[in-house]
Simulated scan of single mutants.
Amino acid sequence: MPVPPLRVAVIVASTREGRFGPTVAAWFAGEARRRADLDVQVVDLADAATVTARLGAADAFVVVTPEYNHSYPAPLKAVIDGHFREWLAKPVGFVSYGGLSGGLRAVEHLRPVFAELHAVTVRDTVSFHGGRSCFGPDGLPLDPEVPGAAAQLLLDRLAWWGLTLRDAHEARPYVTA
């Protein structure tokens, strides 16, 4: 019997005016859509009306986040804290962008937050140091080889965890206190 594709929500975490997140998310979603084992939906936090339903339908998540003041955006924190079952025992990957750190400080702040929600974070990330300077006017990375390879590794790990946890959810409910 064929395995249904893993439903992956690619979350655009920034809602600021002039944000770069949609560009990064569109590139990453394009990389993910090249895989037949994934069904990819972009969830833009700026479109609050669709967030809950799209999160609830996902088997796995990839958070596309900038780094704001050495951490992640407040709208992302609100969405994380405003939901529980949506994240429960599901994998979360990260694509980050920013200045010198490439958004990695935001990712490191997100890992313990998701751990509290019983989500499993994927170790491998995609990071763009200097964010906007890494992309051309066409919305694609100027040097696609390195981020493309990082994206495929992240997706390989996310798919393994996602399928494993989806099977576990179907076999038995995840127990919470």
Rank of each mutant, 00 (worst) to 15 (best):
V92Q: 05
R54Q: 15
P75H: 09
F135S: 01
A36C: 05
G131P: 01
F128V: 01
R166A: 10
G93P: 07
A171T: 11
V40F: 01
W87S: 05
S101F: 14
E170D: 13
Y174W: 15
L153R: 15
R166H: 06
G18Q: 05
A29K: 01
A159P: 06
V12T: 08
A115R: 11
G56A: 15
R172S: 14
V40Y: 02
K77I: 08
V175Y: 11
Y72E: 06
H129W: 09
S101T: 15
D81N: 10
R105K: 15
G82L: 06
D124E: 15
E170S: 12
L140D: 00
S71R: 03
E108T: 12
R157L: 14
L38C: 04
M1V: 10
H169N: 08
V51L: 07
I11P: 01
P91M: 05
P91Y: 07
A171H: 11
Q152P: 04
A49P: 06
E86H: 12
A13W: 07
V92I: 12
V146G: 11
P73D: 08
G102M: 04
S96M: 09
W27K: 00
G148D: 08
I80Q: 09
Y72W: 06
A159V: 12
W27Q: 03
W161P: 06
D138W: 00
T121A: 06
G21C: 09
S96N: 10
G136T: 01
A115N: 09
L55N: 00
F94W: 03
T176D: 10
D37F: 08
E108L: 14
L55T: 02
T176S: 12
S96E: 06
A115C: 06
I11K: 02
D39N: 12
E17R: 13
H118N: 14
A171L: 14
A13R: 03
P2W: 09
V12L: 06
T15N: 03
Y72H: 09
F28E: 03
W27V: 00
L140W: 00
E116K: 14
E86Y: 08
H129S: 15
V10S: 03
G30I: 01
R111S: 00
P147K: 04
P141G: 03
V43N: 04
A48Q: 11
L45A: 00
F128N: 03
R166G: 03
A26I: 00
S133Q: 14
A171R: 15
A26W: 01
